[in-house]
Amino acid sequence: MTFHLHQGDLPEGLDFGASVAIDTETMGLNPHRDRLCLVQLSSGNGICHLVQIPLCRPDRPHRAPRLQALLEDPAVLKIFHFARFDLGVLWHYLGINCQPVYCTKIAAKLTRTFTDRHGLKDLCKELLGVEISKQQQSSDWGAPQLNDEQLKYAASDVLHLHRLKEKFDEILAREGRTELARACYDFLPARAKLDLLGYEDPDIFAH
């Protein structure tokens, strides 16, 4: 594993190719309260770039033009695990409308109907034979200086998403659910914005 920490934005000249794996770290799970602290990206080559986001609020958003250009590039597929949360946070704090997207958690739920274990740690172990640690998941991501254990944990969340996507693409095709999955991915940016508006509960799709 190799990782590079950047402050505020990606450096010039990085090329992630046709697809990039992405994750975020925040102060908690409420986007209106818990700010975005870190964005992790990898092209699936074992190298992770981490962008530390300075203290900002939705009324005083931070701008990261190179990160935004990458995440809004229609020619680059963005791979997430539980994209619904990350898309909302990226929009709320950075004004980034991230498309197109792929979500390994949705792919897991569409294909692994024999289990309710769809967490990234479970998927990596069962599909890839890789053990990842979640020890730093609840640490202070807003600290000015992140320690090596935090950075290694954050990097591990994106280093395996490309391989998971390959596995799920095979299973989705086998089960005839590729197009259904794609339709779900396409809807995710709108679903994330509905969450930000408070439509998570009540769910407008409920009876």
Rank of each mutant, 00 (worst) to 15 (best):
H62L: 13
R63V: 11
A64T: 04
A64V: 03
P65A: 02
R66V: 12
L67W: 05
L70Q: 04
L70F: 05
L70V: 05
E72K: 09
E72D: 01
P74S: 08
A75V: 06
A75G: 08
V76S: 07
V76H: 08
L77I: 11
L77Y: 04
L77R: 10
K78F: 07
I79R: 01
I79Q: 01
D86H: 09
G88E: 05
W91V: 04
W91T: 02
L94G: 04
N97M: 09
N97L: 14
C98G: 00
Q99T: 12
P100M: 09
P100G: 02
V101Y: 02
T104M: 10
K105C: 06
A107I: 03
A108I: 01
K109T: 13
K109M: 14
K109F: 11
T113H: 06
T113R: 14
F114Y: 14
T115F: 15
T115L: 15
R117M: 12
R117N: 11
G119P: 05
L120Y: 00
K121S: 13
D122R: 09
K125T: 01
E126K: 06
L128T: 03
G129K: 12
V130M: 05
E131S: 11
E131N: 13
I132C: 07
Q135V: 12
Q135P: 03
Q136P: 06
S139V: 10
S139R: 15
W141A: 04
W141E: 04
G142K: 13
G142W: 08
L146S: 13
N147S: 06
D148H: 14
D148F: 10
L151G: 01
L151P: 00
A154P: 11
A155S: 13
A155F: 07
S156H: 02
V158G: 01
H160I: 06
L164C: 09
E166F: 07
K167D: 00
E170D: 07
E170W: 10
L172Q: 01
E175W: 07
G176E: 04
G176I: 07
L180Q: 13
A181P: 00
A183V: 12
Y185C: 03
D186K: 12
D186W: 01
